[in-house]
Design a binder for these strands. Structure first.
Lengths: 331, 331
DNA sequence: CCCATTCTTGCAATCGATTACCAAAGGAGA
DNA sequence: TCTCCTTTGGTAATCGATTGCAAGAATGGG
């Protein structure tokens, strides 16, 4: 029989008589035949492959993103080619070029440099490309981003009650663009509720820093001795917002040691949930950044773009971090 | 001119006259020509691609491994195709099969299941495969592993001085195979130095657990009041070995709050360095697991295996975690 | 100026899967 | 029985890069 028949029997592209069908299946199994995806890709002009370009930061977020993208692709029987960029655009562009040489069906990129990555993205040409996490302004690509300001507002709303008068921000660095923006958003939300805001910078934003900051805050808080764990005996701020869970853990450890009631006397929250989505009861109220959802959404956009070639309307999806209430805040 | 000439001009496989050379280069640039890696792979029977199969744990280690593998491949102008396995062998095998269908030049796998992953590995057939991090016994594959026992010995040697009499292990769970092995190794090393060992189990092995364990230990340690931070005033163990940095951080936070001198009164160390290789002064003495090196080594083995086809001698490389002294131990 | 040698270049086949097109065979209806 | 349609199988072209072979061009020695 001809290869054409065999191909049809295996792919089912056109009917093949039951007899031959069976024979082909059998022979294929007994000979250990495996469809050659390379040849198929060449013929079909489709590799069933997507490239993912990430900046070389070793963080939990990126692994969450990789996993969710990988997962989304797998559901569509596609593969993931991964590449890392140093924070320079040249490297970045090389990665995109190389993916295109491999004829990926689409590219998902987390642009390492906001200024310089534009040309990398434009290098994609006709290949669908989705930016994720950060944006370079361009109409060449769809994008999936975070709506942090909204989430910040939700967090503040959650924290603030009648008696809330003061709030300290721990671990954000005003000289970092992204942090400055978060500080602005927190300020705006808090001050519109008559809450006084101050910033305690700590670098780097890790556990140790949280401990140091916690000690400074506790030291300043004049506290009537032995008055229990309530608000009356605590002269510190009414709320502490930390850059991330690590910092918050440090702050909490200090407060706990000193017998300061959390959340009765102070509420503590984190802007960034570092641990993988832990189920059940959380200790720290925090904003969970929806990386898994972002990955899924990026894949969806890409596959959708592949289905409608020529449609060049750039789509933008914004996902808000989700408020996950824990034991460190009231309500 | 013919495509053959153009191909030769660009690849330099065979000499082409200077004139044509220039013309081809020029035309290639102006037409935005990009070599089709798919066609090339089909013809050369080489995809310049390696598959990486990982279990779906979101941990720092795996991202470190991904990065180093990716980096090693990039240096050889190869690409990385990434796939995750659930902790079942079926899925795992599917991944290997799918990579083979894509005609990867080699596979690096961290077998999710020690019992069941054998057939996945054997499914690789003639494709070079390297196991990394864990082993399934088979002579089909090279492997790169950890030599934890050796590192444990080094850590104990580092901790133990004349006066060391007792040691507490925090955060290892005797019912977990890998943990039990670590406990055995610690016991063996410590007891041969006349040090008494006890185990304080904590699950899960995170910061909170460290804090709880620290408090239990401190509560049991009868301490003469106001006697300073030295060993004389501390009735607890001479050394505390924690499952990882998180747990150690918790323990340290507690000790610090209680004014217990570290490392004068107690030494604290961690068996597992969670943070990305932080440069400079470390707080916690710990064992750094050499994931970057393991990734590099795996790539090296793979490329080497590709260069010597037919050579079926399984090679095994063991790397010992590296002792990184910090401020939490003496010496 | 001729022949041998070296360089360039082109032709055509190859990698493996897919599919447009054609042909043969079988069945239905007139 | 004959025509028309449907079903099934084969032939050959295609995707794009690479390369063995051979023809043609250029160079050098005698």
């Amino acid at each position: 029989m001809s290869v054409a028949t065999a191909s049809r029997a295996l792919s089912g592209a056109r009917p093949v008589s039951g007899d031959l069908q069976r024979k082909v299946r059998e022979a294929s199994r007994s000979l250990g035949y495996r469809r050659n995806a390379v040849a198929s890709a060449l013929r079909l002009q489709r590799t069933e492959t997507v490239g993912l370009v990430l900046p070389r930061y070793t963080t939990f977020f990126l692994s969450a993103l990789i996993e969710s993208v990988s997962d989304g692709l797998e559901r569509n029987d596609m593969s993931l080619v991964l590449r890392y960029s140093e924070p320079d655009a040249v490297h970045d562009r090389d990665n995109v070029e190389s993916l295109i040489a491999r004829r990926v069906d689409g590219i998902i990129i987390c642009p390492p440099s906001l200024e310089a990555s534009r040309e990398s993205i434009e290098a994609a040409g006709a290949v669908p490309i989705v930016q994720v996490g950060r944006f370079v302004e361009t109409d060449q690509s769809d994008s999936v981003g975070l709506d942090e300001d909204r989430a910040t507002g939700m967090l503040i709303a959650h924290l603030i009650a009648q008696e809330t008068r003061s709030l300290v921000i721990v671990g954000l660095d005003e000289t970092v663009t992204a942090d400055a923006r978060r500080i602005r958003a927190l300020r705006a939300a808090a001050e519109s509720a008559q809450v006084e805001v101050s910033v305690a910078e700590v670098t780097p934003a890790v556990l140790e820093g949280g401990i140091r900051a916690g000690e400074r805050i506790a030291a300043r808080a004049v506290r009537s001795e032995g008055a229990g764990t309530g608000r009356a005996s605590w002269g510190g701020p009414d709320a502490i917002v930390c850059a991330n869970d690590d910092v918050a853990s440090g702050v909490l450890a200090v407060l706990r040691m000193r017998g300061v009631g959390v959340p009765e006397a102070v509420q503590v929250a984190s802007l960034l949930d570092l641990a993988p989505a832990a189920p059940g009861d959380r200790t720290i109220t925090s904003l969970r950044h929806p990386w898994p959802e972002m990955g899924r959404e990026a894949v969806r956009l890409l596959i959708d773009a592949g289905a409608r070639p020529g449609d060049r309307v750039a789509r933008r999806v914004s996902l808000a971090p989700q408020l996950v209430p824990g034991a460190s805040t009231r309500r």
